[in-house]
Amino acid sequence: MSGSCGCCLNGVLFIFGGCDDNGQTNELYSVDLTDGTFTWKKIIHVSGAPPSPRDKLSCWVYDGKIIYFGGYGHKVLSDLDSRSRNFIVDETSWAGEVFWGWNNEVHVFDPKDLSWSQPQTFGRAPAPRAAHASASIGSKGYICGGRVMETRTSDIHCLDLETYTWTELVPSSTAPVGRSWHSLSPVSDSRLFLFGGLSMECNPMSDGWVFDTGSRKWTEVEHPFKNKPRLWHTACPGRDSDVIVFGGSCDYILLVDTGHCNDALVFQMQPYPLSRICEDYIARTVQGCDSLRTQVPLLPAKLQSAVYTRMCFYRPSKKHQ
């Protein structure tokens, strides 16, 4: 599968949609990450109607539910409403009574009763899109950019996850260039970090930006990974407001498919506390100091566990051993 949408809720990983050799799907799977068996289960819903088959969508987790937005996929003619602005037909892709295109629909899955619903939304919804990025802060879900027909955008919209009301956050400063296949991560109660993506000119990018949801201001961020462009990668918040980027590609994958990446990029978004600085120093130093290594077991249990975790991160790779 490619272009699936994943999220974690109460220790369970949920994977929805995506595309395989037969096209897009609307199947939902889960795997419990806490029971030690890591057994996949196909989820059969009890009520409601699932979204139509799609990929390159996004989701938020809120109040015990998973809220899905957008994506690219197909619908049959009988499901299309000429008056609706929720689905834009891709005029280059259709077959008989099956039409492909972009959507801006909001669907909600409740794992407790295995139900799907499609709530009514208010306000001006974003244009239908796919390959956008999303993140949530509290009861607000944000989306940024993505592909809208033949255009890649950098607009940012907020969905109130309690009232399902959309608001476009018009920037008060210069915004990043339009892009798709990028990532968006929360780094504080009011800031979002954007990294990478594919530009309108189909160039893989490595720029990083912070968006302040209060002032609606974009600020470009200096970082050490300017030589590591990424698109279609994953990103998540780490300890101390770090952002961890993993995988993806450094090529325009529709033309060249040799640039898959498996390294992790760690972005420091604010000064580290003294405890983190000490843990990092010990973890780096202990690799070449046997006398210091023997003292790690003497540390208090909580600090010892943190140091061992950091030691795994700084452990030299085999090619350097």
Rank of each mutant, 00 (worst) to 15 (best):
G3W: 12
C5Q: 08
G6K: 09
C7F: 03
V12K: 14
G17S: 11
D20S: 08
N22A: 14
E27H: 06
V31A: 04
D35P: 01
T37K: 13
T37S: 10
W40A: 00
K42N: 06
K42T: 13
S47P: 00
G48F: 04
A49W: 00
A49D: 07
P51A: 06
P53A: 04
P53R: 00
V61L: 02
I66T: 05
I67T: 06
F69D: 09
K75P: 04
L77W: 02
S78C: 09
S84A: 14
E97L: 08
W102S: 13
N104Y: 05
N104Q: 06
V106M: 10
H107T: 11
F109N: 06
D110F: 01
Q118P: 00
Q118M: 14
Q120W: 05
Q120H: 01
G123D: 02
A125Y: 01
H132R: 02
A133C: 15
S134D: 12
S136L: 05
I137W: 11
T153I: 11
I156D: 05
L159D: 10
L161V: 04
Y164M: 14
T167F: 01
E168K: 07
V170H: 07
P171F: 12
S172I: 01
P176V: 09
P176N: 13
V177H: 10
S180I: 10
S183I: 11
L184G: 02
L184C: 05
S185Y: 07
P186S: 10
P186Q: 11
S188E: 08
R191V: 01
R191G: 04
L194Q: 09
L194W: 06
G197Y: 13
E201K: 15
N203W: 12
P204G: 08
S206M: 11
W209T: 02
F211H: 06
D212R: 03
W218F: 09
E222V: 03
H223D: 02
K226M: 03
K226T: 03
N227E: 04
P229S: 07
R230L: 01
T234N: 11
A235R: 07
S241N: 14
V245Y: 15
S249G: 01
D251T: 05
V256M: 06
D257H: 03
Q270N: 10
R276D: 14
R276M: 15
I277S: 06
E279Y: 04
Y281F: 12
C289P: 02
T294Y: 13
P297L: 12
L298N: 12
L299G: 02
K302P: 04
Q304K: 09
Q304M: 12
Y308G: 07
T309K: 01
T309W: 07
P316W: 15
P316Q: 13
